[in-house]
Amino acid sequence: MAKIIGLTGGIASGKSTIAAYFQSKGAAVLSADDLARTLAEPGGELYQKYVAHFGQGILLPEGTLDRRAIGNIVFSDEQQRRWLDETSHPVLQAAMVEQIQAARQKNFPVIILDVPLLFEAGWDKMTEVSCLVFVDAAVQLERLIKRNGYTKAEALGRIAAQMPLAEKKQRADSLIDNNGSLAESYNQADKLWKEWTHAGLS
């Protein structure tokens, strides 16, 4: 039976790059972000809940959700962020369980749950092993501003909303240091892949 690995990392840590690499090696990669996007499309379960709660002001002219507007609300208001998490996580978790069951039917050697808030949302309980992709704080901030076009304040707000990196490192079973070159990161991933596909996991 496929081993279930929880892959996580701070925002802009390069987690998606590592997830794609594991996928190229034969893993099934199930992305919580992709699930959230699907469920937040017009007519989706999360879309309806968000519009009912936040109002029409979070919609773009074409009727889709303005993700940046929602982000600015929830990352500046702890109560709103708690509401978002408590509303979205059960919906996403149920959808993820369905995806895991579907992936199990296809005989993948490894099923990777790509979940940014793996520890924060308690999704690590769904996995056998957790793996953290990390970068230094300065690298993370620079990448996030460059990638998303955020102001420094917006970027810092999103980083602060996540569990501190030091705590994630303590909780993770495996680490991938993504501060160096891609080749160095892939080399670490190769070692873990060998461990996951050949060693028995208790």
Rank of each mutant, 00 (worst) to 15 (best):
A103M: 00
Q140W: 12
R143N: 12
F134A: 08
E62W: 04
R81N: 08
G26Y: 06
A69Q: 14
M126R: 05
Q48Y: 00
L118Y: 02
P116G: 05
L65Q: 14
A102R: 08
Q99D: 06
W83Q: 11
Q56E: 13
Q80G: 06
F119R: 12
Q101M: 01
Q93H: 04
L65A: 10
P90A: 09
Q93D: 03
S88Q: 14
E45R: 13
A40C: 13
E120K: 02
A94V: 04
A19P: 08
R81A: 05
H53A: 09
P90R: 05
R104I: 03
L141Y: 07
F22C: 03
D77L: 06
L113I: 15
V135T: 12
S130M: 08
L144V: 00
L117N: 05
F119P: 11
D124H: 15
A95S: 11
S13D: 13
I112F: 02
I18S: 09
E86C: 01
F134N: 04
V135S: 08
C131N: 08
P109D: 07
E45N: 11
L92K: 02
A137P: 11
F22G: 05
V74P: 07
M96T: 11
A137C: 10
I111K: 01
A69E: 14
D114R: 05
L60C: 13
D136G: 15
M126N: 07
S13C: 14
Q79C: 03
A20F: 05
I18F: 10
L60Y: 10
L60N: 15
D85E: 15
L141H: 07
R143V: 11
S24D: 13
G57L: 09
S24Q: 14
A102E: 04
T87F: 03
F134G: 01
E128Q: 15
P109F: 05
A52Q: 14
F75Q: 09
D124S: 14
T87P: 04
I112C: 00
L30H: 03
F75Y: 15
Q93I: 10
E62I: 05
E98A: 13
T38N: 11
K49R: 15
A102N: 01
V74Y: 01
L35D: 00
F54N: 11
V29F: 03
E142F: 02
Q48R: 08
L60R: 15
A36W: 04
V135F: 01
F108T: 04
A52W: 01
L39C: 10
G55C: 08
P42E: 11
L35Q: 06
A40Q: 11
